[in-house]
């Protein structure tokens, strides 16, 4: 089948078949990352701009490496060094980037909807690398690839996502992706961190008791407590949060014996996840990071419209 999306704005717009194709394509790219010479000519002559208007280390690095391994020319701009700090509007920034004729813009932005805004105003492809509390599609796809690697199939999986659901774009994208692939999602967090109507986004059940949420789960995904995103009236203390919503060796036993533990990073050790679990045998956190490069290679390749993967 062929991929018809020019942009990757969110998982919401993707069909099950699209997700399947992205994961299969990523699977094929994975092997390149273990070669001695980690480079193929697939996107030679293409220009990719990684426009990160919000701080990011992992995602930006991952997109940059993905582009370079496909032989694209990658250029990075960040919010703190761009004209944004000089008061330029996103539209003007977009038009200026556009004038330099890139093929793909990868955008991370603090405002929900910014990639959609950009996509309406530029001729090239736009890939959403995280917008506000809206979506983070490449993260969801690498999560799915990791689950598929370890569980064989996504369908039928019980996936618990625990943490600040309100502010989490990862949770939203994962809910869409997992629901489309036939998994069931349990979201869990303090009452202040569960947004109205989250259950309407997919195959979702809402919990406030973490023990119930992770009971017999196949996958336990812990979200980072984003201390920089909220005032201190959302939770009384990190100490109390860790007690009720932190994953530790004791409560992890409630999940299935072969459950895997995931985290989109960066982790707050001792808060949402104890070091014993983060470094324990069930964790697949670095597999997620590794898969991130392959998934992003797949996304860049698929939106580029280039006909052959040229993996040789």
């Amino acid at each position: 089948m062929s991929f018809t999306h020019k942009h990757i704005l969110g998982i919401e717009q993707l069909a099950k078949e699209d997700i399947q194709l992205i994961l299969d394509t990523a699977e094929a790219f994975k092997e390149i990352n273990s070669r001695d010479i980690k480079k193929v000519p697939t996107l030679r002559g293409k220009t990719i701009i990684n426009a990160f208007f919000e701080a990011s280390t992992r995602t930006r690095l991952s997109f940059e490496i993905a582009g370079k391994r496909l032989s694209a020319d990658t250029v990075n701009i960040s919010g703190s060094t761009s004209s944004v700090v000089k008061g330029e509007t996103l539209e003007d920034t977009a038009k200026n980037i556009e004038a330099m004729a890139p093929d793909i813009i990868v955008i991370r932005h603090g405002h929900s909807g910014a990639p959609h805004y950009l996509a309406e105003r530029v001729a090239c492809s736009v890939v959403n690398a995280g917008d506000g509390a809206h979506e983070h599609p490449s993260q969801a796809l690498l999560d799915l690839l990791t689950m598929r690697d370890h569980k064989g199939s996504i369908e039928g999986l019980e996936v618990a996502i625990v943490g600040d659901i309100t502010h989490s774009r990862v949770a939203r994208s994962d809910i869409y992706a997992l629901s489309k692939m036939g998994a069931r999602v349990r979201v869990c967090g303090p009452g202040t961190m569960l947004p109205i109507g989250i259950e309407r986004l997919g195959n979702v059940e809402v919990f406030t008791d973490m023990r119930e949420a992770i009971k017999d789960a196949d996958v336990v995904m812990m979200l980072r407590i984003q201390m920089e995103r909220q005032s201190n009236i959302m939770i009384p203390s990190l100490r109390e949060y860790a007690r009720f919503y932190g994953l530790n060796p004791t409560n992890l036993q409630l999940a299935k014996a072969d459950a895997i533990v995931m985290h989109p990073g960066p982790m707050n050790r001792g808060v949402e996840i104890s070091s014993a679990v983060a470094d324990g045998t069930q964790n697949v956190i670095l597999d997620q990071v590794e898969n991130g490069v392959a998934v992003r290679m797949a996304l860049l390749y698929l939106v580029s419209g280039v006909e052959s993967m040229q993996t040789k």
Binding site: S112, G113, D131, G132, A133, H134, P195, I196, G197, R200
Partner: peptide, 13 residues
């Protein structure tokens, strides 16, 4: 408005 649509769009309600 805070509700299912704000949740979906990731906008503060």
């Amino acid at each position: 408005n805070e509700g299912p649509v704000s949740t979906e769009l990731g906008l503060k309600g």
